[in-house]
């Protein structure tokens, strides 16, 4: 089985983000970036299948400028066999990303396309579903458990009502949730080995994909601040405050 897995570079989840004073976005220069945590879980899953013999080849794919190569190297250090870097300096919104991933999937013919359920920068939560729609493939989003076998995937999804299980024919797009696994720590020899693995660079235009009409960002601002809070010293004081507000 062949697996494609998408890898997005995003500001590290531990960073307290700063809004650019001119409202153009968040400050990205000089800020620590890493692989979107959901993508790390997707990569980990693919590699576990490689290790147990379920997967024969795992290919990491990314869209973005030169800096994205760093996250592709990380994916290779996890154990991906090779990587494809679709190069562009432009913003890539989900519909455009989906068109690119469609083209890559048509070229690579994977049995499974694994993605993060959302990227923690834009929190769009769209790309996987859009890619599945473009390909006419089934989708199973927010996966916390995936069983592969017999041309099918049985996927348990974290939904508002609880845990839903779907059975989908392969090829399919599956987007992963946090509880699917805990990604490993990378060991130095693997990081060294990754340096020798191939990353294929591809110009965006080579794919014959058109960028979608963009959603423009007008301005970015900080969320409204909550009013200052108070500390109380006793349970009685707390209860009195809540009664004052008719909350209990």
């Amino acid at each position: 089985m062949k697996i494609l897995v998408s890898v997005k570079r995003a500001i590290d989840y531990n960073v307290r983000i700063q809004i650019a004073p001119d409202g153009s976005g968040v400050v990205k220069n000089g800020v620590k970036h890493s692989m979107n945590p959901f993508d790390e879980i997707a990569v980990e899953q693919a590699i576990r299948w490689k290790e147990d013999g379920t997967a024969t080849e795992v290919v990491a794919v990314a869209i973005g400028d030169d800096t994205v190569a760093e996250q592709l190297r990380t994916a290779l250090a996890f154990g991906c066999d090779r990587a494809i870097h679709v190069k562009t300096d432009d913003d890539v919104q989900p519909l455009t990303a989906a068109r690119v991933f469609q083209a890559l999937a048509e070229r690579e013919s994977p049995d499974l396309f694994l993605m993060g359920k959302q990227a923690i920068d834009d929190d769009a939560n769209q790309t996987g579903q859009m890619t599945a729609a473009k390909l006419g493939w089934p989708q199973a989003t927010f996966a916390s458990k995936i069983e592969l076998g017999d041309g099918r995937a049985t996927v348990t999804r974290e939904v508002d009502a609880g845990l839903e299980t779907l059975s989908v024919d392969l090829p399919a797009v599956v987007t992963v949730d946090l509880r699917l696994n805990e990604p490993r720590y990378l060991k130095l020899p693997n990081i060294m080995k990754a340096k020798k693995k191939p990353i294929e660079d591809m110009a965006f235009d080579e794919l014959g994909v058109a960028a979608a009409a963009p959603i423009e960002t007008v301005t970015t601002k900080a969320p409204p601040k909550r009013g200052g809070g108070v500390m109380v010293d006793t349970v009685d004081e707390l209860v009195a405050k809540l009664k004052e507000k008719s909350l209990i």
Binding site: I11, R16, I17, I19, G25, V26, I120, D121, D122, D123, T217, V218, T219, T220, K221, A222, P223
Partner: peptide, 8 residues
């Protein structure tokens, strides 16, 4: 965006 730490 960014877990509600910015509004666009």
């Amino acid at each position: 965006i960014y877990a509600g730490n910015a509004i666009t």
